[in-house]
Amino acid sequence: MALIEFSGVTKVFYVPAPQPGRLGALKALLRPRCIPRVAVDNVTFSIEEGELLGYIGPNGAGKSTTVKLLSGVLVPTRGEVRVAGMVPWKRRAHNSRRIGVVFGQRTQLWWDLPVRDSFELLRHIYDLTPQQYRRNLGELCEVLDLGPLLDTPVRLLSLGQRMRADLAAALLHGPSVLYLDEPTIGLDVVGRQRIREFVAWLNRERRATVILTTHDLRDVERLCRRVLVIDRGRIVYDGTIGRLRELYGPTRTLVVDLEEDVGDVELPGARLVRSEDRRRWFEFDRASQSASRLVASVLQRWPVRDVAIEEPDIESVVRAIYERGAQGEGA
């Protein structure tokens, strides 16, 4: 049996609705009318022990709700969630000792206290023995390079530093299952790269099962073999990253900033899709065209100030999935 089983899970939130009319506020108070909002809609998937799964989708697609259902914070409206044979919300405390959760947009650290104090408090919250605590903290400090930060108050950390501290806080009790919800959000290239390396290390060295939620496709491309795409509460793709790329991203875009306006231009192997002032957008096929050759030929033809290559973002991937009517493998 798989480590994590998510079968036919639906989660509906009831959002109180404002009511029209002059007495609307009063009516809403006496008899609130609630609009059901389906956050997760009949979702089924399973994850094997040791997998590193990418879970992607646009904002508001249901990613965080899935994580909360997995960690026992929320109870499904329909369907069943099992983690290591247990229903998370029924055995919340027990389940919480084996999972580590990071919500990238929030912190569980004590804002005004030094980083070390948060770790000390978590040691008591999770009832760790001094040996466990020292061993885990030592290892995490080394891998995440936290040593110099331990005595800094959390509010003075940069976003990247805070994220590393938050990752350590979530891992201090040595969980074997990790739910990382947008751990790279808002980080710069270097910060993102560090987090990616750390996640890879966790999966490889600590053999942790990881669900990585993101709306940055590059995170998933670097780390995961398997990826789930969720949109409006539904799984629209479940399969390998390679096949997802074939499906969504046959094309990339080359953006060229010209030194002077040269009017209409043509570039063999690419298609001009947009033209604005001195900037030109060329779409080209990922499989048949090499980006470096295209750049070389652009430089040969025109005086160029700058070039950039754009990858399709998650929104366009989801759009592409719909346009093709493709449902991925087994979704």
Binding site: V73, R106, I125
Partner: peptide
């Protein structure tokens, strides 16, 4: 609103 309650629910306490 701040998600603090979720943080509490994630802990074995």
């Amino acid at each position: 609103l701040a998600g603090t309650l979720d943080k509490f629910l994630l802990r074995p306490r």
